[in-house]
Design a protein around this nucleic acid. Structure first.
Length: 437
RNA sequence: GCCCAAGUCGUCUAGGUCGGUCUAGGAUAGGGGACUGUCACUCCUCUGACCCGGGUUCAAAUCCCGGCUUGGGCGCCA
């Protein structure tokens, strides 16, 4: 928190955390860190008040302090200027030693960092991740606004589980049982049936899956979109493709400082570059043979395993030079009842995944909107249509052909920045083991 | 849910295979001291740890069993 104009000779103040004191005897340098960055404060036996010097000396690191003083340009200072203090105040004293190393001189395990997340987030290279995430959110909003998508907010408390597969968290809803939403998908489609034409939503979803992997968390932020009046699901793919490219372009333009912080501290494992459009499309059937050429055998008609996704990512990068790839035409055997099948080949569907650097970022599909076909598919998947009456009703009274998809914002950040685990990309990750802070 | 691995000062680690000079070493943080341009400041000095419970043994940080915690892989998924 800064007050005043930081130019030569002006009296200014900075409030923030006392990061470090470098004590050279008669000369001391104190580094104060606020949300903007770091400011160097210089003290000397020659020109500083001895009481002020000893007060600073006895302040534990990370305490919140306020320094008022004269701003002086000096090429020797890290930022080109420094403060000669006239007033010093300890606003809130920190206990010591600190439970984790905030200065970053020793690496602290992620688990302990998450226990002390508020201290961990004081590190600029950690907060940079979330500044980028915040800007990504802005880019997403801007993108949908530009394309006349209508933003919706659907309920996260639901009366029945939507999709098969993913487990749901049961909760108490007064005297009834309910669940935390694992996807807004049915509600997005409901809004298409309501005539909203194109909708999007960004909000939390919940998955009660006991995974122990670097790419799963039990609560994540989902970017959801649904488009009415599509001709094919390639309309959805092109939208997702445009979304990714415009988001990356936005970050390259507007998050240069944050990217620089991450690059300079080696917190970032990957370079960010603007991907070329269109992203390569590889059908599942092509993927099977591409992977077979690499000695990886995926049973025909089944989904890729994580090793398969990684290998496909590499193969596509070699062949097409793109880190993104749409994996298209999923087999009906692994599809959901609401996915639309290919007209001429009913064993395959209009469903695709977007894979970025070997990890699934997005699942999208054209939905089956023809009521009777949908009911048939429900039965074919061994489900009871009456359990899905609320959903099936959307299709009884006129609904345009539509499709949509969902992307996990944390996975985008993780893959874009080359983070080792998705937990780095969440302020407060929820895993099967972690429910606090 | 299944499989594998790991728990040592506040923090990050060495040691463990072959049990015994390990009285557990180093770095960083913390206390004390020296130092007038640091920017991972430097130097001297001090404090500080073997996850818990049981077992084997003359002897356990080290080997065995159980528990707890954590990390990774798989199924599944964004």
């Amino acid at each position: 928190m800064r007050e005043g104009v930081f130019s030569d000779g002006r009296t200014v103040s900075i409030s923030g955390n006392l990061e470090e004191i470098r004590d050279l005897g008669g000369l001391k340098f104190a580094i104060i860190r606020d949300f903007e960055g770091r400011v160097q404060v210089v003290l000397s036996k020659k020109f500083s008040d001895p009481q002020l010097m000893s007060a600073l000396d006895s302040t534990p690191r990370e305490s919140v302090v306020r320094v008022e003083g004269v701003c002086r340009s000096d090429a020797r200072a890290p930022s080109g200027f420094e403060l000669k203090p006239t007033k010093y105040e300890v606003i809130s004293r920190a206990q010591s030693p600190l439970p984790i190393d905030v200065a970053g001189k020793t690496e602290t395990s992620l688990d302990l960092r998450l226990d002390w997340r508020f201290l961990d987030l004081r590190r600029p290279e950690v907060s940079a991740i979330f500044r980028i995430q915040s800007k990504l959110g802005l880019a997403v909003r801007k993108f949908f606004e530009d394309r006349n998508f209508f933003e919706i907010h659907t309920s996260k408390i639901v009366g029945q589980a939507t999709e098969g597969g993913a487990n749901v968290f049961p909760i108490f809803y007064f005297k009834r049982s309910a669940y935390l939403a694992q996807s807004p998908q049915f509600y997005k489609q409901m809004m298409i049936a309501a005539g909203f034409e194109r909708v999007w939503e960004m909000g939390p979803v919940f998955r009660a899956e006991p995974h122990h992997t670097p790419r799963h968390i039990c609560e994540y932020v989902s970017i959801d979109l649904e488009m009415g009046y599509i001709k094919t699901y390639d309309d959805v793919m092109r939208t997702v493709e445009d979304l990714m490219v415009s988001c990356i372009a936005y970050l390259l333009e507007n998050a240069q400082d944050e990217i620089a912080v991450l690059t300079s501290t080696q917190a970032m494992g990957e370079e960010i570059s603007l991907p070329a459009k269109p992203f390569p499309r590889v059908s599942m059937r092509e993927a099977y043979s591409m992977l077979a050429e690499r000695g990886l055998s995926i049973p025909y008609g089944s989904d890729l395993d994580p090793a398969g996704e990684r290998a496909l990512g590499e193969a596509v990068k070699e062949k097409y030079g793109n880190e993104f790839v749409f994996l298209t035409e999923f087999p009906w055997s692994v599809a959901q009842f609401y996915h639309m099948r290919k007209e001429d080949e009913p064993d395959w569907t209009n469903r695709a995944d977007l894979i970025f650097r070997g990890l699934e970022l997005c699942t999208l599909a054209q939905r089956e909107h023809r009521y009777h076909t949908l009911v048939e598919q429900t039965k074919e998947k061994g489900l009871n249509p009456s359990d899905f009456e609320f959903y099936l009703n959307f299709f009884k009274y006129g609904v345009p052909p539509h499709g949509g998809g969902a992307l996990g914002i944390e996975r985008i950040v993780m893959q874009l920045l080359g983070l080792k685990t998705i937990r780095e990309a969440v302020l407060l990750p929820r895993t099967p083991e972690r429910l606090t802070p």
